[in-house]
Structures are given as C-alpha cells and as structure tokens.
C-alpha cells in the first residue's frame, strides 16, 4: 500500500509516495535523495541514522515514515552548510573531531538536540547524551571537546 507522506524536512516542505511499512531512513535516502542520515545497523543500536523529529532525537532506521506526517524532521543537512556551518560543525572542524566520519552525521544531530535543551552541558552530560552513538575510529574525546566548544561559542554569541 503506497500513500502520500508530507512533512517538513530541514525547514522545507517534503513529500513522497511511501509504502506502509517504510522507515524514515529509507524515505530520506531512497525517495528523497538526502543521504546525511547513514545506514549503520537498522536496529536502533548505533546512532548513525539519528535525526530530529520535532526536536527529539530518533533512530530513522526504525521509525516508521508514516509517523512523521506533518512533523518537522531535521537531518545533518539542516544544521549548516560549508559556507555557513552550525557552531557544532565549525567546532568539529576546528578540533578535527572525526576520522572516517561515518558516525558524525548522527552525532552532530544528537549534539544539536542536547544543546537545544541544555546550553551548558558538563562533559558527563555530553557523554550521556551521546552514549547511544557508536564511533569505531575512537574520536570520542575530540567529539566531547568539540561539543563543549560549540556550546561555549553559542552561549557567548547569545550573551
């Protein structure tokens, strides 16, 4: 059964013909050609596919696409652009927080949700918020530092 799905993707309207059981990750990647959310495990165990739905972190690989009807979805593409990076992206670049980079889309999205809710997280709070996300290359400490740096910059900019 295919049906029309409409939602907001990174601030712009999006729609696709989707099958009843399709996941949001499939719709993003296969139907809409938006590749920032990665396929990692398909089981909600790794965080590579993380997106925001109305500001909440979700595993796009297990979330039914139908459930985002009318809601706002944010992927890493919605954070910033190379010309106008989000403070998180700028901080990750500055601290070279990444190696292969496969985990980074999900982690950036997870970090954005954290900073939206808690502009001054401690290192422990950042680690807790990102604990679901796996990184095989072992870039954890740089990522924690980069999130803290971005948080500081955002607070300074807001002050």
């Amino acid at each position: 059964m295919r049906r029309n799905l409409s939602f907001t993707l990174n601030g712009a309207p999006a729609s696709a013909e989707v099958e009843g059981e399709a996941t949001l990750l499939t719709v993003l990647r296969a139907d809409l050609g938006v590749f920032g959310a990665r396929f990692g495990c398909g089981l909600g165990q790794c965080g590579a596919c993380a997106v925001l739905v109305d500001g909440r972190v979700e595993a796009a690989c297990t979330l039914s696409a139908a459930s985002v009807e009318g809601r706002a979805v944010t992927t890493v593409e919605g954070l910033g652009t190379p010309e106008q990076p989000h403070p998180l992206q700028a901080a990750f670049l500055e601290l070279q927080a990444g190696q292969c980079g496969y985990c980074l889309s999900g982690i950036l999205v997870g970090a954005k949700a954290l900073l939206d809710a808690n502009p001054a997280p401690s290192r422990t709070e950042i680690a807790q918020a990102l604990d679901w996300h796996l990184c095989r290359c072992g870039v954890h400490n740089r990522i924690l530092d980069a999130v803290a740096l971005a948080a500081r910059r955002m607070r300074e900019a807001a002050a």
């Binding site: 990647r29 670049l93 980079g101």
Partner: peptide
C-alpha cells in the same frame, strides 16, 4: 594542516554508500 577529507563528512556528503 587540517585534514582535506574531513569537511564534507560534517555536512552529510562523502560516502560510497551515497553514490547514485
């Protein structure tokens, strides 16, 4: 020198898995 391979990975691009 900042790594040349890193920037695209922060903006959602870059992997073979995304080749169409």
């Amino acid at each position: 020198e900042p790594r040349v391979d890193l920037p695209p990975k922060l903006f959602g691009a870059a992997f073979l898995h995304d080749l169409v």
